[in-house]
Design a protein around this nucleic acid. Sequence first.
DNA 1: AATGAATGAGCCTTCATTCAT
DNA 2: GATGAATGAAGGCTCATTCAT
Lengths: 214, 214, 214, 214
Amino acid sequence: MIKRKDGKKTKLNLLNAACEVFAQKGYRDARISEICKRAGSNLASVNYYFGGKRNLYGKAWQHAYEKEKPDFSDPVTTPAQDRLRAYIQALIQNFSVEGDASLFNRLYLMEFLNPTGLIQNSWYKNIEPGRRILHGILRDIMGPGVSDLDIKFCELSIINQCRIFMNIKGSDLEYLLGQAITPELIRKLARHIADFSLAGIQTGVAPKRESTVS
Amino acid sequence: MIKRKDGKKTKLNLLNAACEVFAQKGYRDARISEICKRAGSNLASVNYYFGGKRNLYGKAWQHAYEKEKPDFSDPVTTPAQDRLRAYIQALIQNFSVEGDASLFNRLYLMEFLNPTGLIQNSWYKNIEPGRRILHGILRDIMGPGVSDLDIKFCELSIINQCRIFMNIKGSDLEYLLGQAITPELIRKLARHIADFSLAGIQTGVAPKRESTVS
Amino acid sequence: MIKRKDGKKTKLNLLNAACEVFAQKGYRDARISEICKRAGSNLASVNYYFGGKRNLYGKAWQHAYEKEKPDFSDPVTTPAQDRLRAYIQALIQNFSVEGDASLFNRLYLMEFLNPTGLIQNSWYKNIEPGRRILHGILRDIMGPGVSDLDIKFCELSIINQCRIFMNIKGSDLEYLLGQAITPELIRKLARHIADFSLAGIQTGVAPKRESTVS
Amino acid sequence: MIKRKDGKKTKLNLLNAACEVFAQKGYRDARISEICKRAGSNLASVNYYFGGKRNLYGKAWQHAYEKEKPDFSDPVTTPAQDRLRAYIQALIQNFSVEGDASLFNRLYLMEFLNPTGLIQNSWYKNIEPGRRILHGILRDIMGPGVSDLDIKFCELSIINQCRIFMNIKGSDLEYLLGQAITPELIRKLARHIADFSLAGIQTGVAPKRESTVS
DNA sequence: AATGAATGAGCCTTCATTCAT
DNA sequence: GATGAATGAAGGCTCATTCAT
């Protein structure tokens, strides 16, 4: 069963294995020997296909993002508030695959903590597009009279609420909430965030208190 | 020949140096040689005083927390809403020392990503107390009729909003907001979070919509 | 798609590329990947055509010698002293192609320093023939009364003088002589060696001092 | 017998072992594992003491030179011709330690063939001084009327004659000469070179033929 | 006949730790 | 009590070679 025709497959195996191991162990603690073992390939294959551990890390990062890219493709005809709910739902799901920080999010934090310099412009390429969609939704809700900064503050409020799973271990979250994390609970949480945020957004609209005015 | 008088001082130097290096490089990339050099001590001193790199890491974690512990000691007589504003202010300041993720927060994320098992019960000992205070404030605002889960959801919404600096590089944040991060901007942000959250909290109170009811 | 028609050509390309790379980098530092790239052939072609790096090295050695074999074919009727001058001229040119040690000479030194055992009897096969010619010339000049050892000493004196370029970098030689190495200078040098040697040879002739007599 | 006090000794052992192994195998083929084994030290000791293989190579080169530095310290009152004989004797001995190319000469050739760039200015620091002495001797013999270039040509003629052992294996030389290489033979050879050269030198003097005049 | 995919052996280096002082 | 010398373990990478096509 010694195959010599699956160049693409082996590469993909390595990529997947790398995502898991890098996300689990971090760049330095990740052993290419383990990655190769999981991918069922030779120890030298990482160098052969990617030219080294560092390059593999960069490719794995991108690969993980592609796999988990959230889908925000709601028709513009949908009411803005419903679009926001869908957005939050997608985001929180994205952040909470498997209950713990998802593959990509772990890699994102890794890069945040120990920048390798191998992920060039990740923010602009990967994060920014999704944020722009949120910006559009918020503009629709808040109206043209609101300043861009106020909208951006709301973006941050919403996105960071959705990042629960990025900053806390599933087990700790369960301890805190006093109950197991079920899909049902996550849905409940998404609804809370949406309600909470829609109310918060109103603050920035209409009567326009002195709130964010210096 | 300035020897033999600074047993405690050397230990403290090591601790401070360790905080910096661990926070900067992460556990694996941190070199005890660098820590010792910064502390102005001998290469073997880490082993001598702490018995190894792993133990030093644990101690450094605690040390960093003590140094940055936020102060939530508002008198209970203060109106709950004002206490919440103060709480948020303290939290965001804690998270944003120097504009980037603070020392302790970096270590917190490190431990989150690569649990060493050396930080036993850190959550319960260090994070939980502060959370209980927030819980109390929210209970005061929302009243006794609200379920504990609803309050905890609000806790999460608030805390995570304050964690902005934990998940994004200062430079990326500046790009996003379109302006430099000044103390003034941070105050503005804190005010936004307070306003946004106070509005969001109301959702969970009074008319009690079907919100968090499954 | 220019395949399957150049078996011989590819082999020759490999041989030439190998000479260059081996001479430039030495046996160990030479990379067959580079040889193949220069030859415009496949990475596996070396093994296919030559059965491995070691064998290729041996073939390249021979190939380089054939390409630079000096021409000592002066008619025996020419006066012996003129034949010596021509010999020296040929030798020094052979050793100084391009101003630096020539291809073959580098390979010769390589093999001298790190015998691979692949160049069997190189001395006897390649060097010896030319030396015999010199021996004949010297015998003609010095006469039948001179011992073979004395003649051989003169051979060595002459040959080694011609080996200037084998032991010193062109740039160092220029520094030493205080001028650029031009064809003109090389001719001057050849003339010096001839004059110098012809005078030296006389020592071994005639009056026969106690010189080389133990 | 585990010693912890012989830092200097271990370093010296490594240096000596390195000279041997580098001279024997060349830079690339030399294994630091073998060097360490010969020095009776740990595999990591090369990095500890020298910071890597490359640095060790540079130090070994210098070390080998110091060990074999020829002694040309004849009083200036000695007749120039005798000083030349002594010089040649010293040079040929230097080049022929053990019958084969000596340690330093092998390293010299290695560097000549595969410049590492680690031997900075070695030529000027190590080779040049000895050459200047020869220059002085020749100037004394040839008189002030002779051009510098003519003297330098003679330098080259002499030095290269002495470099016999740098270019030919001892065994090949024995084959060529038809006898074993004994100290007696080497002395005889030195005498030949001196006689041969002294005669050659005369060419460049007195009547000043058209010799080196283009 | 000739090639590109894939491999395995081995080397240099790093670095936390230990030992003798 | 504290230090500098020295070590052992292990990891990433290189590269000639082999295999299946």
